[in-house]
Design a protein around this nucleic acid. Sequence first.
DNA 1: CGGTGCCTTGAACACAATCAAGTATGGTGG
DNA 2: CCACCATACTTGATTGTGTTCAAGGCACCG
Lengths: 229, 229
Amino acid sequence: MNTSFTSSNNKSISASPSFNDLKTLLTFSQPLFTLRKKTTLITNGEKFKGLYLVHSGLLKQSQLKKSSENEIITHFFFPGDLIGLDSICEAHYSGSVTSIETSGLSLIKFSKIEDLPITKTSHIQLLRILSRSMRNEHNRMWRTLSQSSDSRLAYFFITMSSKFREQGYSPNAFRLPMSRQDIANYLCMASETVSRIISRFENEGLLAANGHEYLILNPEGLANIAEKT
Amino acid sequence: MNTSFTSSNNKSISASPSFNDLKTLLTFSQPLFTLRKKTTLITNGEKFKGLYLVHSGLLKQSQLKKSSENEIITHFFFPGDLIGLDSICEAHYSGSVTSIETSGLSLIKFSKIEDLPITKTSHIQLLRILSRSMRNEHNRMWRTLSQSSDSRLAYFFITMSSKFREQGYSPNAFRLPMSRQDIANYLCMASETVSRIISRFENEGLLAANGHEYLILNPEGLANIAEKT
DNA sequence: CGGTGCCTTGAACACAATCAAGTATGGTGG
DNA sequence: CCACCATACTTGATTGTGTTCAAGGCACCG
């Protein structure tokens, strides 16, 4: 493995947008527990138990299609993310959630929203979080739908890059634990296509990839590709 | 025009899921007003003013892509639907909303969520509505992303059919005021593709289309196509 | 070492977009 | 009411992007 890549994303979570908005909610948080890599946290159709807060690691939420056995990944959960937002007010979780890396989690337990003995203010906070995540989803949706594979993948790297920047890590050198197949399922393409485009990006000097380690060499170039149809 | 098609969807709205959940909210509803066909209700980036309740007609919400001039339609709003749910807790609406048919609307006015002097119960109702619409969005998203054009269009007709059934109209004979182009933009395909598939469905005896009037002849057949990849 | 899983690369194919006519339809003015 | 035009819709031919199928490479681990 090439050691010129810096992999420094293993410290505990710091500030994330969710945290400031959710102070009240977090007082309900139960003790932190560890989930080994490639372990299922939530199975498909499981009863809603509350929200999970990710402290470390990486998880994926996926829907399995009945017809074929290929999955579609609807979310990656990074440290600071809340798992289950799309199931608040529902009886069951949607899809299944599995850890990609060994992850640290805590459960914010409530079976129904009414069980939360919290104030009007925190309800508004919840509303705001839901609303924001809805808009993000929406944004991601039409991007994925209407853009070429090239711009989707370029945008993916840009998003990852700013995620690391927000958390105080280098935005230009990071490790993504998910496999090519996972990235492909997230962006709705074949893993071969992901490989091919990454190779091309490397030839064009946009980035360097070594296994799961990535170096962003030309952020502007990537941004240009992400923005064009 | 073939008169064997029954077009009976011009009575006022009846029960819709939203209504039971939103009684409190609806007390804020301002007087009903009329919007002529092909008129803009919300321009892109407009300041958030509140939710609009659709009483009659049909509207579309769309994002325009800067690069090309083709739009992507993110929502159709039928009677009983609320416009602006994805912008609650935001300063601005997302995208623009335009009437396809002459429509009757009322505004539920509030600039910020805090302005709503409503109870904890109604906040929970709002949360529930947001949550549900988030899940529906999600569902639609992965469908559109991962299914073939055939199954997307088949699913579209099935969805429309059950929408009419829910509102007490015939699920097998209805009028859809939107153009082929609108349907295409909603499903993220070319209008030619919509035409072609509809023609094929007609040849296969699944449905009959005459302008904007549609007859569902074989719901099970359509459902089969919708369910397969 | 030999295995297993993941990734890369090549070649052929398929689906849907685009380009290009040609055909209805609806609205307007004479 | 009809002639006309503009717009929407349909259909065909061609192209291109991305999938699928297939083979080979590379690293990790026993």
